[in-house]
């Protein structure tokens, strides 16, 4: 019995809805020792900025109940190096649609990167990160008000013909108004949610566990928050949503899609179980059979 796992994002067909989330999968190479990454629906590569960035001082990572905090701070080799080195290397090992995750510190930087990426045939979708909680004056300032997110969406649409998905922050009072502003400004889709701002203290040193003081919370701890936000946003917009936040299992994928996501991203789980996406994809038919789902596309609300 064949189950139809395929989904579509703005005209881009994916064999299945499972996409490793940006920042948890590098440029793919680290995972090839564990499985053939061509089984993935797509791949969102490590958030890329105009200039190379080392990111934040270490420690950048802390454990939490059912999750983790990270304050990596957008470490990346910069857009030129990504285009000349990382992207060709990724293309050698990955033949499926690629999502380019772009971040910046000013409107000009976003536009610079998107214009460059627009020329890359290998990239099918641009995911615009306006929600990184770990950099000062970073993407998140663009993602926390409808006006600024509207401005950045409109301007990016002018420099690229590729579908653009705005990746939204959960660290806002009203994510629906921000999502609607993206849609009204011409965004092709939305990715949600990025990490939730969090913090832990070290009892021995009486100092924050993370050098950056705060970090982004991810992992199964945030799954219900993500489902709620995807549901609320899906009720208010008609553009496709890539749902993410704490997905661990095939059941979680189905749940996220029932809440309104057209596809999903798996993030932190890749870091604790490098086989996570493979296991989820292989388990999807079993879960579809259990809940009598013939095609994942039929789940869309």
């Amino acid at each position: 019995m064949g189950y139809d796992l395929s989904v579509e994002l703005s005209g881009v067909r994916l064999d299945n809805p499972v996409i490793p989330a940006s920042g948890t999968f590098g440029y793919g190479a680290e995972f090839t020792r564990y499985y053939d990454i061509n089984i993935l629906g797509s791949l969102s590569f490590k958030g890329t900025t105009k200039d190379a960035r080392f990111g934040n001082p270490t420690p950048r990572i802390a454990e939490t109940p059912s999750g983790m905090l990270n304050a990596v701070g957008l470490q990346n080799p910069g857009i030129e190096s990504v285009i000349s080195k990382e992207l060709p290397n990724l293309r050698k090992i990955f033949k499926k649609p690629i999502i380019a995750n772009i971040s910046g510190f000013s409107l000009e930087e976003y536009l610079y990167c998107c214009e460059k990426i627009d020329k890359e045939e290998q990239v099918e979708i641009i995911e615009v990160n306006v929600s990184c909680p770990n950099v000062k004056h970073g993407g998140m300032s663009f993602g926390t008000s409808p006006d600024s997110v509207s401005l950045i969406t409109k301007e990016i649409k002018k420099v690229t013909k590729k579908p653009i998905y705005i990746k939204l922050s959960p660290n806002v009072t009203d994510i629906v108004s921000i999502a609607k502003a993206c849609e009204d400004a011409g965004a092709d889709g939305l990715s949600l949610i990025n990490t939730l701002l969090g913090m832990r203290m070290n009892l021995k040193t009486r100092q924050p566990l993370i050098k950056n003081v705060t970090g982004g919370l991810s992992g199964p701890a945030i799954f219900p928050v993500a489902v709620r936000m995807v549901y609320q946003v899906a009720s208010a917009v008609s553009i496709p949503i890539i749902g993410m936040g704490g997905i661990q299992t095939a059941e979680n994928v189905i749940e996220m899609m029932m809440a309104g996501a057209s596809a999903v991203q798996v993030g932190a789980q890749n870091l604790v179980n490098p086989y996570a996406c493979k296991e989820i994809i292989e388990d999807l038919p079993r879960v579809m059979e259990k809940y009598r789902i013939n095609s994942l596309k039929e789940l869309k609300r």
Partner: peptide, 27 residues
């Protein structure tokens, strides 16, 4: 030794700066 996230080079949690560029302690 550095605090790690994944331990296999994916998360950039344990990066250091070296004379040969940014390196991951784990990978």
């Amino acid at each position: 030794e550095e605090r790690m996230g994944c331990g296999f080079g994916a998360c950039m949690g344990c990066s250091i700066q070296t004379k040969n560029g940014y390196k991951r302690v784990c990978k």
